[in-house]
Every structure is written in structure tokens, then in C-alpha cells.
Amino acid sequence: MPPSLGEGGIRAVRDCSLLQYDTGLAMEFRPLRSFVEVVRQGGFSQAAKAVLTSQSAVSKAVKQLEAEVGVPLLDRMGHRSVLTPAGEVVYRRAVKLLADRADLLAELDEIRGLRRGVLRLGLLPACSSVPFTPLLALYRQRFPEIEVRLVERDSAQLEDDLRTGDIDIAGSLLPISPEFDFEPLCREPLVAVLPSGHPLATQAEIRLADLRDTPFIMLESGLALHRIVLDASRRAGFLPAIAARSSQIDFTMELAAAGLGVAFLPRMIAAQRHDAAVCQVRLAEPDLEWSMAMAWRRGAYLSDAASAWLALVRERHGEA
């Protein structure tokens, strides 16, 4: 069984969770914030960069939190730190407390009439330009006073940012965890991007299994499109040989043009890129789709800026 926090430890965690309307609010949450970032970033030096402070300040904050709860939260093994059983409990609660605090401050600002005018929007680093550029341009045109802060991270990192309240809303691929609400944005089939000299390049439509002997050019493993293609390959009965991985769409197409193998892109993304050295062939896989939605933490408070963004998504993509 996990070790008990003890009466003093429980009281300390409870006291730390109090959302007081005073200038000490930010100070009370700094140890929690530092601790959460150490866990999320995988170390003290990375956490220091995330919270814009020194590594020694982060270490001091975590030690302060451990002193308050009365038990070690991290098992320090050289350069690695692993959560103790008590640390797992505190981390889970701290993530929710930090998100609730962000909601509280946002709601208070709305009540006081303090329109901060900031939309914190998370996007995937690949395949986001086509669906989001027109939306961002229209949003800017309608709400020029709102600052848009873009965060580009992979799906798992964006979900973490939503949980902690670091971003308001994120563009993510379906399926989405049930802990989030979502609004569909777009649904696109995938196309195979083949070298023009490939035997299948002139076909109007091919199946994924037809490409089992062709090396795959994949987006990085942290990106959702990588998982979509690999899962579909397994359903087709094979594991592909991977010739190369990249986080850049243009580079994957250049690699395909150079004859390294076949790349896979959503049709709307591929259609924006024209290269005589490659052919884009439709995949006859009804369940192989790139489906994007806007996601936010279930039950979270949405600022006016985030609500306006959602309204725009529904207006432009209501039938996605």
C-alpha cells in the first residue's frame, strides 16, 4: 500500500489547495507548479526552463513541498527522479489544483471586467497549417484585440497542457480521451505519396496492403499521423519497413520524390503541394481517416476568447 501522508501531510496538501483571494495566491502555488513541471519535463533543469526560473529555485520549491506534506515525493536516482507512491497522489491532485486555479482567475477577471484578450491555442506541429490558417486569419479580423498564443506540441503533450490549464483549447486528432469535450473540425482521407516511377503511381486507387513491399516514410513517432498509419498497417496484416522519419511534411514529400519510399498525408494537406516527381494516390481504406477536432478540458471554464474561437469553428465547420 502507498505510505500514508499522515495528519500533518494531509493538512498541508489541504492548506495548499485553498484558493484565497489575496496576493499570496501565486506564491502558494509555486511549489506545486515546480513539482508538476519536474514530473512533466522529466527533470529539474528542463522544469526550470518551463517555469522561467533557475534549477536551484525549482529544487528548493520541491523540497519545500516535500517538507509541507511530510514525505518524499521524488525518489532521486542520479540524474533521474521517479515519483514515490505519495508523489503520485500529490501529482494527480496538483494537476487538477493548478487547472482549477487557472479557471478561478479567468472567471474572476471576467466578473471584474478585466478582458485579458488572450487565446491560448494548442496545435499539432504537422498538418495544422491548412485547416487553421484561414480560421486564425478570420479570428484576427473579427477580434483584433485578442492576442493568440500558439503552442505546438504532439498530442500527448497537448493533453497534458489542457489538464494543467496551460492552454485553453487544442486541435487534436480523434479519438480523444473521454476526459475532454470536443468539437469536430474536419475529416479527410489519407493519400499515398509515391515516386512517379513507382509501379502503383498511375493507379486511381490502391489498398494499403498493396504497399507492403514499399518502404514507408513516416512522420515522427510522437505525431498522431504516425500512429494512424501504423495501426492501419497492422489491420492490413503487415508491419512496414520504415525508410525515414521526419517532423516536416515538405521533407517527407521530397524524400518520396527522391525514391526512398511512400509517404502518407491527409488529402487536403497533400493537395497544397505540387511536385511532378511524385503522384498522390487515393487509399481505398474506409477506416483510414485523418479526423481533427478542437478539444478542451471537460467542465473547464472557457474564457470569452476561447468561446469565440469555438463559435467560429462551429460556424465554419459545423458539418465536419
Rank of each mutant, 00 (worst) to 15 (best):
L239Q: 14
A256G: 14
V313H: 10
G6P: 13
L239E: 15
Q20K: 12
Q280L: 02
G70R: 08
L288D: 01
T214I: 05
S233L: 11
A86S: 14
S172Y: 04
T202V: 14
V51T: 11
S291C: 15
L138Q: 10
T164S: 05
R33A: 14
T23C: 13
A258P: 08
V262F: 02
W290M: 12
Q157S: 09
V71Q: 14
C186W: 02
S4C: 15
L239N: 13
L18R: 15
S233D: 03
R11T: 08
G6R: 11
E285C: 06
E254S: 11
S34I: 00
V262E: 01
S303G: 04
S177P: 01
G87W: 07
I169L: 01
T84I: 05
C127N: 14
S196W: 01
K96D: 11
G113Q: 00
P31I: 05
M268N: 03
R298A: 13
I269L: 07
L52R: 10
A236R: 06
G8V: 10
Q64I: 08
S233H: 06
F44K: 11
P215N: 07
G165E: 05
A306D: 10
V13L: 13
A263V: 03
A156G: 09
G318Q: 14
C279W: 02
P240L: 15
A244M: 03
D231Y: 06
L25N: 03
L225R: 07
S17W: 12
S221P: 12
S59C: 07
V58C: 03
A305Q: 01
Y301L: 15
A276D: 03
M268G: 08
M253N: 08
A320N: 05
E145G: 14
L174N: 13
A311E: 06
P31D: 09
M292I: 04
L219F: 00
P131H: 05
R207V: 04
R234I: 04
V62Q: 09
L138T: 02
K96Q: 14
D166K: 04
A50T: 08
G24R: 03
L83P: 09
R207Q: 04
F44L: 12
V191A: 09
G122Q: 07
R33P: 12
R116D: 13
R207D: 09
V38A: 15
Q41H: 10
A86I: 02
R92D: 08
L98A: 04
G122S: 12
A94T: 05
K49P: 02
Q157N: 07
L265C: 13
R163T: 06
L123I: 06
E110F: 13
K49G: 02
E254D: 13
D103K: 12
D161L: 03
D210K: 10
R101D: 05
A156H: 07
M218G: 02
G42N: 11
G70A: 10
Y91G: 07
H317G: 07
P240K: 15
R212V: 00
E319C: 12
A86E: 11
S59Y: 00
S177N: 01
Q55F: 09
V313S: 10
V281H: 03
S128G: 04
S177A: 02
Q64E: 00
L185P: 04
R14V: 12
F238C: 06
L105V: 15
L255E: 05
V118C: 04
V82G: 03
A209P: 05
L138N: 02
L190F: 04
P178L: 10
R227A: 13
S56C: 07
P266A: 06
